[in-house]
C-alpha cells in the first residue's frame, strides 16, 4: 500500500509518502503562518521526492485534531479534495494518538498534552509498550491541573502543552516525569502514515466519513449552554 499523509493541526505542517514499512519522502515546516499557502506545494514536493504522482497512491491519511480549528480543517478539506478527485479511501487519526505513536516500545505510558490556550490542554494518556498506542482513557480538554490529578508514577510527557506546563508537571506530587528530546513535541505525518499501515487497507473509509476531532465546542455553543 502506498499512502500520502498530512498533518496541519498545529503551527507546524508535515507531509510524507510511505510504502508499506518504508518511508519514501517526508517534508516538515513550522513557519507559524497559514497552512493554506503551503500544504499543496508541500504535497507536490513530497510526491516528487518519492518519484510518484497522485496516480500511484492507494490511500490518503490525515490527522483529525485536536488542535487549531482552522489548521485542522485546511488539512482535512485538502485531503478530502484529493480523495474525491482520485476515488481514494482515507484514514483519519487523532493528533494525540499520532503523537503517542512516536514513543512505541517505551515501557512507561505517555501523557500527550497539546496547548489548547485559555489555560487548558488537549490531553490523553496512552500505553505505548506494544506495537500500537493503546488509549488509557478518553481525549479531554481540561486544565493541566485536572489532567495531572488523574495520573501517578512514571509518565513520559510530550506536546506543546507539556512544554508550556513543565513547571506544574514537575511539581505534581506522586509523578515521575520523563522528558523526550526537544524534537518529539510536534505531531508529524510520518506517525500518521505508520498508524494507517498498521491498521491495514481494510480500515480505510470513504472521504465523507472522515470528520475533524475538535474536543472543544465553539464559543457560541458554550455561551448558549451557559445561558440555559
Amino acid at each position: 500500500m502506498k499512502i500520502l499523509a498530512a498533518d496541519t493541526t498545529t503551527a507546524s505542517a508535515s507531509v510524507c509518502v510511505m510504502e508499506e514499512s518504508k518511508m519514501l519522502a517526508r517534508r516538515f515546516r513550522n513557519p507559524g503562518q497559514t497552512h493554506s499557502r503551503h500544504l499543496l506545494p508541500m504535497i507536490e514536493g513530497v510526491l516528487g521526492d518519492a518519484g510518484m504522482d497522485m496516480r500511484h497512491l492507494d490511500a490518503l491519511v490525515t490527522t483529525l485534531g485536536p488542535g487549531s480549528f482552522t489548521g485542522l480543517r485546511i488539512g482535512v478539506s485538502t485531503m478530502k479534495g484529493l480523495a474525491m478527485a482520485k476515488g481514494l479511501p482515507m484514514f483519519g487519526f487523532s493528533t494525540l494518538e499520532v503523537m503517542a505513536a512516536r514513543f512505541l516500545s517505551h515501557p512507561a505510558p505517555v501523557c500527550i498534552m497539546m496547548d489548547a490556550r485559555r489555560g487548558e490542554v488537549y490531553a490523553q494518556n496512552f500505553d505505548v509498550s506494544g506495537n500500537i498506542p493503546k488509549a488509557m482513557g478518553p481525549a479531554v480538554v481540561a486544565s493541566p491541573h485536572d489532567v495531572l490529578a488523574q495520573i501517578q508514577g512514571a509518565f513520559l510527557f510530550a506536546g506543546s502543552g507539556a512544554l508550556l506546563y513543565r513547571k506544574e508537571i514537575m511539581e505534581q506530587a506522586g509523578l515521575q516525569a520523563l522528558w523526550p528530546g526537544i524534537l518529539a513535541h510536534e505531531p508529524d505525518a510520518g506517525e500518521a502514515a505508520f498508524l494507517a499501515m498498521a491498521a491495514g487497507r481494510d480500515a480505510a473509509l470513504p472521504p465523507h466519513l472522515i470528520m475533524p476531532l475538535y474536543l472543544r465546542k465553539s464559543d457560541a455553543e458554550l455561551q448558549w449552554e451557559k445561558k440555559l
Partner: peptide, 9 residues
Amino acid sequence: GFARACAFG
C-alpha cells in the same frame, strides 16, 4: 482547500 486539492488531483 477542497477545490484546489481536487483540481490538483
